[in-house]
Design a protein around this nucleic acid. Structure first.
Lengths: 137, 137
DNA sequence: ATGATTGCAAAACATTTGCATTCTA
DNA sequence: TAGAATGCAAATGTTTTGCAATCAT
């Protein structure tokens, strides 16, 4: 509870019931389900008798993204998946058959690309690597 | 002309006026504009007095994707960008300010990830790395 | 009290699809 | 000429938005 309020405050967001609910839902889904759609969050809340508007969820997730609380992914065209930003740099392997999403890490890679981009005169603000796979090598 | 027909035939697609037009448009856009949306292709053709249905373009691009003639990207939620598959493995740097898309290569990285994925028992069928940047390091 | 936030429904898009018509081989 | 491909418009699915009502400080 406190942690959630702190997180919101630090993000510069006013503490409202809806924002708490959405953040709570994302946190509760960890660590099993890390990449929820807006609809997932909506269904979860409605199932828990916590009515909320889907539009509100989209607005809140956009604010969370802006505040770097969550990362938005476009693994497929849509819907987008949102995951809590946990600092640790990682990337994803998406199985095109099962839809399974596996997280992998390669910190060296991130640092390397960060440097490369800087040498080109830019600042790296987002790193997105997705390996699309099928079962059976 | 011949090259286009050959390409289509090799892809196992019947040669139709619409498919030729779409492929031609993608080729003509090279090398300056490599990542066209379905709408881009549509506008280009209409501007050239080559009427075509937008739905048809979506259908054709999906077929091209299936045949590995083009790659579909989801740099942002939508619309999707399509680029001619030119064999060479590459990835993209997208400037969030200007929208500019720069292509970069790192064959070693691709090969490395391919191996890693195979060690996990999967087959790599798609590789997508996007570095989102801002101007000024 | 005041300005931010929410719910709801409508709008805005991107994309897909059904079906009658038109092409290609 | 048979089966595939197309145009068009309607349907779908996701996300955004306007506005009146509600909430947080």
């Amino acid at each position: 509870m406190t942690s959630i309020n702190q997180t919101l405050r630090q993000a510069g967001l006013k503490i409202t019931l809806s924002r708490v609910k959405v953040l709570q839902t994302l946190m509760d889904a960890e660590p099993k389900r890390r990449h929820l759609t807006a609809e997932d969050v909506y269904k979860e809340l409605v199932a828990n008798d916590e009515p909320i508007g889907l539009g509100t969820i989209y607005r809140i997730l956009a604010q969370f993204e802006e505040a770097n609380l969550v990362v938005r992914h476009h693994f497929t065209s849509s819907p987008a998946n949102f995951e809590l930003a946990r600092g640790r740099q990682h990337y994803h392997m998406v199985c095109e058959e099962s839809g399974e999403i596996v997280e992998l890490t390669d910190t060296a890679l991130y640092e390397q690309k960060k440097r490369e981009v800087e040498q080109l005169g830019y600042k790296l603000v987002g790193f997105n690597l997705v390996l699309y796979v099928e079962e059976g090598s």
